[in-house]
Design a protein around this nucleic acid. Structure first.
Lengths: 253, 253
DNA sequence: CCAAAAGTGTTAAAGCTACACCCATGT
DNA sequence: ACATGGGTGTAGCTTTAACACTTTTGG
């Protein structure tokens, strides 16, 4: 964790080693208290929020840059990361307005004229994340996906696009495997799918389907301590899950 | 057609107005004689082939650049184009070897140190395309997807990735609508799906499914002139097709 | 008349949808 | 004891997979 910050640097000191005009932004998704959440950053001295992101260095691949940024913001290595779109419009944002808002953080002279940004979404285990701001920001926090405020740049649009991509790729990506802790209950898994799909599912049909796929194993233990009947705990059966995903056979209808 | 060439320009004259280090490459797919085909370019004075592509200009969006390049190579406007991946490795190709091979076409001093390339696939009606080489190449030709030669850069890898993306998006994209001519037969449509999926389908089940979806209308006429029994002609029912696609309900199993 | 491709129907199995009640636990 | 959420079975319907023969046409 201590060595995450040294990568950041000020714009001045690292400018020379960056790929010009190419940045990336990450939609980091977690799941907590039955809600999908996104990690957002608040810029120093403002109430303005944005997605975590940054430039690509000359000596690293684009994917490596995404992993670096993820590591810096969450403390996690080995994150599930998926490129989903390139945002390449000429005027991706109202430059003047944003320059003005952030002038005490970023020297307005140093703004790129234009930047093409590669969008990634990341699926992380909420409970393992330690949110950390970067050099330009002073707060890094989870936001409920339903309650995202207006963000800087085109970042609201990026989040929408990421969720659409995630939905489309639901049957090809190890969604549950990455978003849930090692052990979880069937209702938790169901609500995760419901959040992503944006509709409710029948618990009997859901359980039958998941069990028939064989992607989870029921454990002996139940989750104790909550009010109400103690639910069974499950674990993903990784081998089985990956076998099905390579065939794209995890569709939900 | 005459005004497609004026966009090309030599590297020298247009260098200043380009986004540095950002290029794109297009996998242009057509369907002819029961085969999926890709449009490739042969570099001047060599036997080396590559995908059509090029840099992004400072005053155009990335998507606009892709449409421009498509128009230049095929003569077609309004092409179906889909971004599918960013190729961002530091060493995407063996620079030295390729510089050497192409030194009589591109001044080795002018090679970028590194370029990040955005991959697009395009689905076109083979019969409407007029292949046209660009400023660096002298031949533009369709190649059977099964018989692609070793290409420059990482372009063989790009084609593989495009086909994987196409397969994954089969139930969300208007594949047939863009790859087939206005009128087509059921066996043609079936073989298109077979080519993309890489396996054979049962003709009875295929026909039943397509007709049940209602995405095509059978015409009065049959295709005459071939040997053997004359097949019915069909047309896409565009409205119905798009309605199903927005729900992702065109899966093939 | 022969070879090659087009066109079609049936049956069994699997998967999907819809639906309602009892159980366990903490307060 | 009650409120809350967890857990399960069944019946009807739809969808899928597997399978083979007849028709048309040109050569």
């Amino acid at each position: 964790m201590p060595d995450t910050v040294k990568h950041v640097g000020t714009p001045a000191e690292s400018q020379l080693s960056l790929l010009p005009l190419l940045t990336l932004d990450c939609i980091i998704l977690g799941f907590h208290e039955d809600q999908l959440r996104v990690l957002l950053l608040r810029w120093k001295g403002t109430q303005e929020w944005s997605l975590p992101g940054g430039p690509v260095r000359k000596d690293e691949s684009v994917d490596a840059a995404a992993h670096r940024i993820l590591k810096e913001r969450t403390g996690l290595d080995q994150i599930f990361l998926q490129q989903f779109h390139v945002f390449g419009d000429v005027k991706r944002y109202e430059r003047e307005e944003i320059r003005e808002k952030l002038k005490h953080v970023v020297d307005p002279e140093k703004w790129y004229e234009r930047a093409v940004s590669i969008g990634y979404y990341a699926l992380v285990d909420y409970s393992k994340v330690t949110p950390m701001p970067d050099a330009f920001t002073e707060e890094c926090q989870w936001w409920d996906i339903q309650e995202i405020p207006p963000l800087l740049f085109d970042h609201n649009h990026m989040i929408d696009a990421a969720l659409r991509a995630l939905r489309m790729q639901l049957s090809w990506q190890p969604i549950g495997y990455n978003l849930l802790p090692d052990q979880f209950t069937m209702p938790e898994l169901q609500r995760l799918y419901e959040m992503i799909l944006g509709r409710t599912l029948d618990p009997r049909n859901f359980q039958r389907k998941i069990l028939a796929l064989g992607i989870v194993d029921r454990l002996e233990a139940r989750r104790k301590g909550g009010a109400h009947k103690a639910p069974y705990l499950y674990q993903f059966n990784k081998a089985r899950y990956e076998a099905l995903l390579t065939e794209g056979n995890l569709s939900f209808s």
